[in-house]
Amino acid sequence: MKKLGEVSGKIALLLVGMFVSTALLIGVMYVIAIFLGTTDVIMEMAEIFTPVAMIIPAIILYYSFKEKRYFSLKLRHAHSFKNMGIGALLGILAITASFLIIWLFGGVKVVAIHHILADASFWRAVVLFLLVALGEELFSRGYIYNLVKTRYTMPIGIIVSSILFALMHAANPAVWGSLWPMLNIFLAGVVLALIYEVFQSLWAAIGFHFTWNLLQGNIFGFEVSGGSFGTSLLEIKKNSSSGDWLTGGAFGIEGSAVSVFILIIFTIILVIKIRTAKN
């Protein structure tokens, strides 16, 4: 019970810290917006820097409770750039496979191809998704996963961190439209934790998270967890007769059963990789 109280208490503090830091950040941005007489640019900046609100409490709790006695955040690694690159390639593979299956089965049709490199909204999305990946991975895999894993076991750490990761998206648009979005996000949390374990580097998970989001939204033209984030390379039209189970509906690829299938395959491969390395 003492161990459970310690873990649940620290997670509660982390969540409270996230809400407080988010509120403070948005409040500061709002005051600046009022002072300057404009809200558009400032509110866009708030959206970009909001993921920082997840990084701050994770770092504070990590050092305040001297967690380095039990685990490392795995941010300092001799092969950080290489691991991030490998994670990014795995993310590209996973989301591209999901898109191709949806397209091959007639779920979407490509109606136009846009030039995006000169579009400011594309680069804004790049920065946003990089910060989101850094913030959510440090928060979910870096701190919560390691906290639970070191007090219990790796499987329990994966399950708890993935459930909390899914619940963090519970207020996203269209997330409750079917069972697929929450299941997808939970499985994404599982895959990200396994990638973290395989490479022993948070940067690998950050790379996967980053390219999964960026390609989903700004290359293949889907919503990302229910939101739209600027111009995409491909302009697509969803086939309404195919059903949301295939297209993902208003939630994006993460709302599709196809994504569940791909993430399960990745989970199996990564578990085999971990077990093989231990033998």
Score class of each variant (00 low, 15 high):
Gly142His: 11
Ser178Trp: 11
Lys68Ala: 03
Ala188Gly: 11
Asn213Met: 05
Gly87Pro: 08
Asn184Trp: 05
Lys273Pro: 00
Ile34Ala: 13
Gly227Met: 05
Ala120Asp: 01
Val108Tyr: 13
Val41Tyr: 12
Gly17Ser: 05
Lys273Asn: 11
Tyr62Val: 05
Ala58Pro: 08
Ile265Lys: 07
Leu36Cys: 01
Ser240Phe: 10
Asn146Glu: 14
Ala171Ser: 12
Leu89Lys: 02
Phe65Ile: 01
Phe186Gly: 03
Ile32Ala: 14
Ile48Trp: 05
Tyr143Glu: 01
Arg151Thr: 12
Ser256Trp: 10
Lys237Ala: 12
Thr247Ile: 11
Tyr63Cys: 00
Ala174Ile: 00
Ile262Ser: 09
Ala133Arg: 05
Pro51Cys: 07
Pro57Cys: 07
Leu130Ala: 09
Pro173Ile: 02
Trp103Lys: 14
Gly207Phe: 11
Lys68Gln: 12
Lys2Asp: 08
Gly85Phe: 13
Ala112Val: 06
Ala193Trp: 10
Ile60Phe: 14
Leu214His: 02
Ile48Thr: 12
Phe165Cys: 07
Met1Asp: 02
Gly230Thr: 06
Glu44Asn: 13
Arg275Lys: 15
Gly135Tyr: 09
Leu15Phe: 14
Val7Trp: 13
Lys273Gly: 02
Gly85Lys: 11
Leu73His: 06
Val271Cys: 13
Ala53Phe: 08
Gly217Gln: 06
Ile158Tyr: 10
Val20Lys: 00
Ile219Gln: 00
His169Ser: 02
Val28Tyr: 11
Ser161His: 07
Leu215His: 05
Gly221Tyr: 10
Phe222Ser: 02
Ser72Arg: 10
Gly85Ser: 09
Thr150Val: 14
Val160Trp: 12
Val260Thr: 15
Ser161Ala: 15
Ile86Asn: 01
Phe186Tyr: 11
Glu67His: 03
Lys238Asp: 04
Met54His: 02
Tyr145His: 14
Phe19Ser: 10
Met154Tyr: 03
Glu6Pro: 01
Arg69Glu: 15
Met1Ile: 06
Tyr62Lys: 08
Ser225Asn: 06
Phe208Trp: 14
Phe129Gln: 01
Arg69Ala: 12
Phe99Asp: 03
Leu61Gln: 06
Gly230Glu: 03
His77Val: 04
Gly217Arg: 03
Val126Leu: 07
Asn218Asp: 12
Lys149Met: 13
Glu197Met: 09
Val132Ile: 15
Lys3Thr: 13
Gly255Asn: 12
Lys238Leu: 14
Phe208Thr: 04
Met54Cys: 04
Trp180Val: 06
Met182Cys: 05
Leu179Ser: 09
